[in-house]
Design a protein around this nucleic acid. Structure first.
Lengths: 241, 241
DNA sequence: GACATTAGTGACCGAGTGTGACTAATTCGC
DNA sequence: GCGAATTAGTCACACTCGGTCACTAATGTC
């Protein structure tokens, strides 16, 4: 984050402004990076880029570049803020004048990113992981982005095997369940979880066990999706909101 | 249309082009309007705005305005193309340089809209409904928007009572099922459909029957959601893609 | 060795769903 | 008028799925 090139900030405004004005981008790409942290979901925030408000925090963001696809820009912003890439990213929402952006950009496109557990923020105090329920005050547009990103993440959890990207290649089922619990924000029942998991043929046991302190050692598994269920189901009227 | 101030159009590009250039918007709002039409889902297309390519078709779109929220812009574009408003709109996706836009805009935000069945396109031949499987060639970005909008529509169908907005205040259950079938693109089983519908307490019978040609007259219903089911369900591993 | 702790499975129950067959009420053709 | 065709609506059966509790298994701690 600290090495964000200043030159990339202002797009969309002729560089020949007569009086010195805060350089504003028309369109920003903002990234909501999530990672599990001691059984809680945390968000990466960086110190405000505006030098007059360095004590404030904001989501990592940068101006969009016209020759760069949006998902590439999001990956760039994530890598620049974190030092490492996100395990998975997805576009969340675009927003405009209904909420204020900390960089005063007119429009913004928010991306969601998942980061493997245990990734530390870069040194220097420029970036830090904040638990979801202890976020500092954010600009309205960033606040809305975090909420949308969380909804999108939980929606996406049912659609694609996102959780496996937060784990090492081999893992125990308890680890996997814990990841799901952190991402969903609620406890799951062990037997149901395993039954559904095995029915979907997503994991494969390997001939290895791991002992984590006390208790019976757990068998290790590998992500190895086998079948594809067609999933032709009826209409669901029961989860209308 | 296209009355966006020139000053904000070209970002990332020196604004001092010497020769007269086609006015380009940096950010467009594009709308994919769907309506059912004789048991098929159709999309509204308008004639290309570029006067040099009037025989081509494209999605309705316009430049975003910095003082106008994006959803308001989408509603404006829909109303301007159709003459009437859409029954429901939702943001779909933002895209950039990975696909070409017919107006050569650098970035675009696509909206999805549903229009009540039977709404005719405005006279003059400037706009027309095309069945989904008989679309004329579109610019790549518009083609991708249609596909994304369709996915989003079907995803949203399970989440909110969208289908009811395409029907008059009172309707028969066969009408409702037909709307669902058109939107989903597949047949549903009558008994399952009604059982699930009644279990969700979404509709209420009124003391009126309607006879549509031959066959037994159908009872009329009204959309009247009663309960809210908490919907605490486990993880779904079975519809991973 | 008793106990706490974690892993893993089996069995029951109730809700939800796919399906086919049935009844009900109307129009059409003769 | 009467039966066939057509559309509306319901019932019953089998099966699946998900929540829950109870149990066994294997380890560490004291």
């Amino acid at each position: 984050m600290r090495d964000r090139p200043q030159t990339s900030a202002p797009a969309g405004r002729p560089a020949v402004a007569a009086r010195p004005v805060i350089r504003r981008a028309l369109l920003s790409v903002d990234v909501v990076l999530f990672t599990p942290h001691s059984r809680r979901l945390t968000v990466l925030l960086v110190r405000a880029t505006d030098p007059r408000a360095r004590e404030r925090w904001e989501l990592p963001w940068d101006a969009a570049r016209s020759d760069e696809p949006l998902d590439v820009a999001a990956a760039r912003v994530a890598r620049s803020a974190l030092g490492a890439g996100a395990a998975w990213t997805r576009q969340v929402v675009a927003s405009g004048s209904e909420h204020r952006h900390p960089g005063e950009t007119e429009f913004s496109i928010a991306y969601l990113g998942l980061v493997a557990a245990g990734t530390p923020p870069p040194v220097g105090g420029e970036a830090s992981w904040f638990p979801l329920d202890e976020l500092p005050p954010l600009a309205p547009r960033h606040r809305a982005m975090v909420d949308s990103a969380l909804s999108m993440l939980r929606l996406e959890l049912d659609q694609s095997p996102v959780a496996f990207r937060l784990l090492p290649p081999t893992f125990t089922l308890s680890q996997l369940q814990e990841v799901y619990e952190v991402l969903l924000g609620r406890k799951l029942h062990k037997a149901s979880f395993r039954r559904a998991l095995h029915a979907a043929w997503l994991v494969e046991p390997i001939d290895e066990w791991r002992s984590e302190g006390r208790g019976r050692p757990a068998q290790l598994f590998r992500y190895a999706p086998k079948k594809r269920r067609s999933g032709r189901r009826g209409v669901r009227f029961d989860l209308l909101g």
